[in-house]
Simulated scan of single mutants.
Amino acid sequence: MDNSGQNYWQCGRFQIDLAQPKIMGIVNLTPDSFSDGGSYSSSLTLALKHAEQLLKDGADILDIGGESSRPGSDFVSPQDEWKRIEPVLRELVTWNVPLTVDTRRTWVMHQLLEQQLADGINDIQALEDAGAVDLLAQQQNIGVCLMHMQGQPENMQHNPEYQDVVTEVGQYLQQRVSVCEQAGIERLRLTIDPGFGFGKSLQHNIALMQHFADWHAAAGCPVLIGVSRKTMIGLLTDETEPRQRVVGSVVAAVAAVARGAAIIRVHDVRETRQGLQVWAALGGSI
């Protein structure tokens, strides 16, 4: 369970109970996604069918993304990002399920909030885009996930370097939480993400998992973890095909929850739910 002392996440229309770990299902609306190759971006029908299946499989939250953040990804304009996600969100917002949007653009955030199409913002740049903090501070209940990333998606995996990755990630997240709070964004609206695979080598990722409590304590907010199908899983298992990394991803998700993660962002919801259920039934502390 979340060990930050915060027992729920204020996320738009919802107060999400964190006494038990929550599963965030990924809805990629990008044609160049590393994990599914744009399988659900070609039509509104396919995207909604996928979202429905994630909920049937046990997702507690849906995370919708219109810009790929895979290493080396191409630039997408905020306007094109918006065109990808807006039709899907207009339908999903009627489903009475928590909706977060994976975006780093203030312009996109403004459209979302003005049209009331998102409960939370999941930002790989931790609201560093100009005006993002002030925009979210004007909202009463919108949830925010602040993620650490070294560099930008197009270059972040070009030899990332740290003196002490655990300390540096913790300090960065602590600083971003402070900036948000000083602007008027309540802590109950905040979650943090160390950004596995975002400007980090395999050894950096392993260190962050092994020393989870150290960087987590620095910021003191509930933790969202995304390791699903990522390169780190492939390197640990010698599996080059992202879709074949399900078992490794589930093991990593359970390991993160065992260390204190409150929310797990995944592609494979059913398998992750089963893994967490078995872990808990066998006496695992969640």
Results as ranks from 00 to 15, higher is better:
Lys200Ile: 00
Val93Ile: 15
Glu168Cys: 02
Ser201Trp: 00
Thr191Pro: 02
Met24Thr: 00
Ala256Lys: 01
Ser285Val: 12
Arg84Glu: 09
Gly66Leu: 08
Arg229Cys: 04
Ile233Ala: 06
Val27Asp: 05
Asp2Ala: 14
Ser201Asn: 02
Val27Arg: 09
Ile192Met: 12
Asp36Asn: 13
Ala281Asn: 15
Gly199Trp: 03
Lys22Arg: 15
Ile124Cys: 02
Asp57Val: 07
Gln15Glu: 13
Gly72Cys: 10
Glu161Phe: 07
Arg176Cys: 01
Ala207Thr: 00
Glu52Ile: 02
Leu113Thr: 07
Glu241Arg: 14
Gly195Asn: 00
Arg270Ser: 15
Leu18Phe: 06
Phe34Lys: 09
His267Val: 04
Arg265Trp: 04
Trp215Ala: 01
Thr167Met: 10
Leu113Gln: 08
Pro78Tyr: 11
Gly72Asp: 12
Gln182Leu: 12
Gln6Tyr: 12
Asp32Phe: 01
Leu135Phe: 08
Lys22Asp: 07
Leu136Tyr: 09
Val133Tyr: 05
Gln6Phe: 12
Leu173Lys: 06
Val27Phe: 05
His211Asp: 14
Leu282Ile: 04
Leu46Ile: 08
Asn141His: 14
Ala207Gly: 01
Gly199Pro: 04
Lys49Ile: 01
Leu136Gln: 08
Gly283Cys: 08
Ala218Cys: 12
His158Ser: 11
Ile23Tyr: 10
Asp80Thr: 14
Thr240Asn: 15
Lys200Gly: 00
Asp2Pro: 03
Gly184Ser: 09
Arg84His: 09
His204Trp: 00
Gly197Glu: 00
Ile61Asp: 11
Gln15Lys: 15
Trp107Val: 15
Phe34Ser: 14
Met147Asn: 02
Pro78Glu: 12
Leu99Pro: 09
Asn7Ala: 11
Gln277Asp: 15
Glu128Tyr: 05
Glu239Arg: 09
Pro87Leu: 04
Asp60Arg: 07
Met24Tyr: 01
Gln115Trp: 05
Asp60His: 14
Thr272Lys: 05
Pro98Asn: 11
Ile23Asp: 08
Ala19Asp: 12
Leu136Phe: 10
Val251Met: 14
Val223Ala: 03
Ala130Phe: 04
Thr45Asn: 11
Ile233Val: 15
Val251Leu: 13
Glu181Ile: 05
Ile192Leu: 13
Ala280Ser: 15
Asp74Met: 14
Cys11Gly: 03
His148Asn: 01
Thr237His: 11
Pro222Ser: 02
